[in-house]
Amino acid sequence: MISDITLGQFFPGNSPIHKLDPRTKLLLTVAFIVAVFLANSPLAFFSLFLAVLTLVLASQISFKVILKGIKPIIYVLIFTALINIFMTRGEGEPLISFYIIKIYKEGIIRAFFMAFRVILLIIGTSVLLTYTTSPISLTDGIESLLSPLKKIGVPVHVFAMMMTIALRFIPTLIEETEKIMNAQKSRGADFSSGSLIKRAKALIPLLIPLFVSSFKRADELAIAMECRCYRGDKNRTKLVKLSYKPKDFLWFAFGILFISLMIALRIIPQHISGSISEELFNFLFFKI
């Protein structure tokens, strides 16, 4: 059934990563994304790999779940990898030359790192955020981090409220969609056969009632919120207040250390890091 879809794929747990403040995780995620894009040498990729491995182990999320998370993008990965392999022109002799198809060593290296980068990016961000942070604390974290923007008039609270309500109503709307679908099916509607256009047309009698009822819901919810004295973030307090713990600072320290390392690897003169990388790369792939 559709309602099995879990939004954001949060896996409740008690791991060190789960217990971190959502703001810490958000900041670490930003640092991580920057690090992934800074990486351009095998040594840097190796460090990234170690960092992701640490995160996965610390989060106690099973490898099966992690692999499942990569599955949806596997075709995109293969496609980009193939493009990289065939389109990259190297300096030396091509490894394989077959009519117009020429495959160079650079192409393979590039394709490999490209795929590796995307995979690490996805695993890292999902372990840091989506798998280990409940949507509500994620929203709280975002609101708190962005709150300085309130000073320049950005309606941060409104966005956070919108996100909370969206999260609250997604399951309700999914349930309702199912109900309407069943009602239409019982009157002979067919959602799953025919041409694409025919199927799209079959969705119209589904979407219209859904829209109408959503507007009604929004109206009622707005009144209910007013009745509960909602007036934006004016004079508003919170039941749960985010607070940094010592372990958050520890992870910040890790994060800073790591990003410095990545910057260092990036700006070390190419011939030094390059030769280290080359050796490492040759060691990893051609000696084994």
Partner: peptide
Amino acid sequence: FQNPDNQLVAT
């Protein structure tokens, strides 16, 4: 109100 779904705000 009548519809409990449309009064609850949080998750």
